[in-house]
Design a protein around this nucleic acid. Structure first.
Lengths: 123, 123
DNA sequence: CTGGATCCCTTGTGATACTG
DNA sequence: CAGTATCACAAGGGATCCAG
């Protein structure tokens, strides 16, 4: 059972609240790239993850999508954006400590996907 | 670390294989309704989950989407479809034992969503 | 009752060219 | 280098009607 904190009190979330929470999670983390980006940054916590480098290394992502997704993730406090006053300017992205909270989710998805593939193949 | 079974041998999945697995999971379970439906059926394992009843009880879903989503879920062995020769015919859906394997995922999403909401509100 | 067919609108995503 | 603007297209999803 999931717990919810509202107006200072902690209680059990209702079924409807759980559904809403799930939908919000999917909205925030769903789509083709968000979790991919999170994993990418999680695997490179100490490197200089410049925009250009990310675009080169994340399989087929376009600048437009990378820009948009990073902005969304930043709004949700999952990544940080650091502008460096080099010439020309560079920008570095890093996953936040809070952002690491999505890693259990990506792990669940990875292992489910692997199991599912063998399940589907076996019949 | 996630394990993968391929050609009879078991080994650790490569980073790329993990990404592919994650993407497949999102493709199969993503979208607006799939996980919602799975939770609905998981909470009603013994009831007669007719198409009509589901459409009435799952918030704003249209017949088209419910039909399509259930078909997708059935192909992936996550739900079963039983045609009853009543007059007129009725159809019952149930979550499979295998399908219950997605419940840890929905729980993760629920609790992440609840935590995230309070996180975002607090600043 | 189930759910397919059709039409239509919105959103997501990609390609390319361009600016500070 | 880091993005934005624009165009174009595919996919997601809703409404309605209809057939078995």
């Amino acid at each position: 059972m999931a717990l919810i904190e509202k107006n200072g009190e902690i209680r059990e979330a209702s079924c409807k609240e759980e559904l809403t929470a799930m939908r919000e999670s999917v909205e925030i983390l769903g789509g083709k790239w968000k979790l991919h980006i999170m994993r990418y940054l999680a695997n490179r916590p100490c490197e200089k993850n410049s925009f250009k480098k990310m675009q080169r290394e994340i399989d087929g992502i376009s600048a437009k999508m990378l820009s948009k997704e990073l902005k969304d993730l930043e709004v949700n406090l999952l990544v940080t954006r650091t502008l460096l006053e080099t010439k020309p300017v560079t920008v570095e992205y890093q996953i936040t400590e809070y952002g690491r909270g999505v890693l259990p989710l990506t792990e669940t998805l990875v292992s489910w996907g692997l199991k599912h593939r063998s399940k589907i193949r076996e019949d």
